[in-house]
């Protein structure tokens, strides 16, 4: 025999999943939300994510090649996902230079400073967003109101959560503010002010179904987050409807859907076991409502996820899967 046989340990077969394929799956799942944001916010929503992805990929390539001096691994597609997710959390009228800074922080600080894919403790897109949120509060909170596809000049305004917070700060009853707030149906369909990707709950849910169908993520994290938010805010609403918004409002407003489905489920920064995922989801849900209700910022999802990201190593350490055979001897 002229050719040498290859010898390796079993298994000798491999599944079809690869990192780039999984990342592509996430991008596909984000497409409905992207389409919705283009529908609501116009052309800006088309090119800002593209630019963001471009910046992310370029920064990752440059940092890997010239700072870390290793083979750039942009092929894995994680930079694309980070760029896209970051763009989805920004208002559509964001200046390009701020976008560039945001992607640099997301990729450079959020991911590459820890060694690249797989090693970052915090969700890079959220690191970028929070950095921008704190550094450029004016630009970051002038949310354009959806005026339809054709309108060129968007009118800016507050998000429903911003309205709520502002109203409560002025001591108004939540019940009285309902007139100013969008209806639940409008929020479900995405007809409200907000960042590019977060407005259309229906589009995000479509993406969620796709992710589940492709088995890219499991149901644990999104479902526990949404359930916890619903139950916790619902409890407060039942106790005191005057000071608290309805649980449905909490579910549909702000970045909760985007955060629960796409941000919290980020592979690298979420727990490894189903049991751990449940703990993590409950933590994010509770923190979100707490920050929304009592915190200084109107929106709490981003901080809740980042805080729980910090707990992930601890969860991985102590929450173990149920081992097979870990039972009392039966019989």
């Amino acid at each position: 025999m002229d050719k040498l046989l290859t010898v390796s340990m079993s298994p000798h077969a491999h599944g079809r999943d690869t990192t780039p394929k999984l990342m592509l799956g996430v991008v596909i799942a984000l497409l409905p939300a992207w389409a919705a944001s283009v529908w609501f916010f116009g052309w800006g929503a088309l090119y800002v994510p593209v630019l963001s992805v471009l910046f992310s990929v370029i920064f990752e390539y440059l940092i890997a090649k010239y700072l870390l001096k290793k083979e750039p691994s942009i092929r894995d597609g994680s930079a694309v996902v980070t760029g896209l997710l970051l763009a989805f959390t920004l208002p559509v009228n964001i200046p390009v230079w701020i976008l560039a800074i945001g992607t640099l922080v997301a990729i450079g600080v959020g991911k590459m400073s820890f060694g690249g894919l797989g090693t970052n403790p915090f969700n890079p897109a959220l690191v970028g967003r929070v950095f921008l949120f704190i550094s450029f509060p004016v630009q970051m909170t002038s949310w354009p109101l959806p005026k339809g596809f054709a309108t060129a000049d968007a009118v800016t305004g507050a998000t429903p959560l911003g309205l709520l917070k502002e109203g409560m700060r002025q001591g108004e009853h939540v019940a009285n503010m309902v007139r100013e707030l969008p209806t639940n149906y409008d929020m479900f369909m995405g007809h409200m002010g907000g960042s590019m990707g977060e407005v259309a709950a229906v589009a995000l849910l479509l993406g969620f179904l796709y992710l589940l169908w492709r088995r890219i993520i499991t149901w644990h994290i999104p479902v526990t987050i949404l359930t916890t938010v619903f139950l916790f805010s619902g409890l407060m609403w039942l106790i005191n409807p005057a000071d608290n918004a309805s649980p449905v409002f909490h579910l549909l407003s702000g970045g909760l859907m985007l955060g629960a489905i796409f941000m919290a489920t980020d592979y690298v920064t979420s727990p490894m076991t189903p049991q751990g995922m449940v703990w993590y989801g409950v933590g994010i849900g509770l923190l979100t409502v707490i920050i929304r209700r009592w915190g200084a910022y109107p929106e709490g999802v981003q901080f809740a996820i980042l805080i729980m990201n910090a707990f992930v190593p601890l969860i991985n350490m102590y929450v173990k899967p149920k081992r097979f055979g870990e039972v009392k001897k039966n019989g």
Binding site: L5, T6, V7, S8
Partner: peptide, 22 residues
């Protein structure tokens, strides 16, 4: 002379456990 090709985790301990080596 090499008589086969080893693939897999790049440590002697694992290759040793598998077979005589390449």
């Amino acid at each position: 002379p090499r008589t086969s090709r080893y693939e897999g985790a790049s440590t002697c301990a694992i290759e040793h456990a598998l077979y005589t080596g390449d």
